[in-house]
């Protein structure tokens, strides 16, 4: 059974780690989570981002949600917004593609061009 005592232990451990972090400006990962996104599978995509970002120990990335981005047929849609405000829009995401975006884009700074809305437009 999970207990509140366990939560207290987590708190103590987390406090030690938090003090080691620097306050670099954050990259924002925004997952479209309106009816269209949810029905298309946005929740597992968001979950994959949260898990992979933790696995890679990235402390300069926050994951959040937004409503309908406006291109429902391309959901699940994820926007990656850099501290300088530049934005990359990934479309038709899956948990597997999310893992790739974390590794290539968030860790190594290389945009996964083939997954972006621009690449999709050219194909279709």
């Amino acid at each position: 059974m999970k207990s509140l005592a366990e939560l207290e232990e987590i708190r103590k451990r987390a406090l030690e780690q938090i003090s080691l972090r620097d306050d670099k400006e954050k990259i924002r990962v925004v997952v479209g989570m309106a009816t269209c996104g949810i029905a298309a599978g946005a929740r597992p995509v968001m979950n994959a981002f949260v898990e992979e970002i933790n696995k890679r120990k990235l402390t300069n990335v926050s994951v959040t949600m937004t409503g309908c981005i406006g291109v429902c047929r391309l959901e699940p849609i994820v926007e990656v917004i850099s501290p300088d405000g530049s934005k990359v829009t990934y479309v038709k995401m899956t948990p597997e593609k999310a893992v790739r975006v974390v590794t290539e884009h968030l860790v190594n700074g290389r945009v996964c061009a083939d997954l972006t809305i621009g690449a999709y437009g050219q194909e279709g």
Binding site: K2, E6, L7, E8, I10, R11, R13, A14, I18, N54
Partner: peptide, 22 residues
């Protein structure tokens, strides 16, 4: 209970998920 530790900490989210599943 968490005080200054954010509820968005990965370990906290995992605990919440397990707790809810139970």
């Amino acid at each position: 209970t968490l005080g200054e530790v954010p509820v968005t900490e990965y370990e906290v989210l995992c605990w919440l998920k397990d707790y809810l599943n139970e």
